[in-house]
Amino acid sequence: MNKQIIIDGEVVTYRPGQTLIQAARESGIYIPHLCYQPGYHAIGSCRVCMVKVNGRWASACTTLAAEGQVIDNRTLEVDAHRKQIVQMLFVEGNHYCPYCEKSGECDLQATAYELNMQEDHFQHLYPHRSLDTSHAEVWLDRDRCILCGLCVQASAEQDNKHLFTLGGRGTATQLLVNSSSGQLGETNISAADEAVAVCPVGALMKKQSIYSRRSGERTYDKTPISKLEFKA
């Protein structure tokens, strides 16, 4: 039998074993998220899906729905915290939307728009990160990587190639490539791989397909990510 939780005053039914974000999605309720994608294991690392469950913070992608939960999702308080997390993601990398090939199609940017972020607030780290253009079909721009780990999962479980892992610690954490030189060029990655498709930002990009849509005609140019979430 279906059970119920309350999200922003709305009654939402869930099946035992579902996480908050899964239950919300089935009811057409958008909870902002970056490192979680349907079909992937939730690792709860980006903290963008944080909600308040009966007054306590919890990540919606790793918390199981349970009877009696009253959840704050799109309240001013919760969204203000989420905006700060997205701002920290921006200053921690080198995110230059004006010339980024992913602009208009980027989930990080779209989430910033959704949360009405207009500036970066925190001090920019301007980290020195490396660019890997050694492969014929795919390039890796670590400046834009938000370390969500989706490509790691996709490459291992869907592409069966095990090409990526996250290595290092703290702000030095980076996406590593599983080849003897550490370069993509030595791997059998393909532009059709799920690891490339699932990248929410412009870190893993297909070569020769960039700037294919005009400004104004791109996915998030006119429609917020919260409205597009359930269209697919």
């Binding site: 004006p98 970066d120 920019h124």
Partner: peptide
């Protein structure tokens, strides 16, 4: 963009 995060000159 440049006033907000340095923009292209910040390259």
């Amino acid at each position: 963009a440049c006033a907000i995060n340095g923009g292209v000159p910040a390259l």
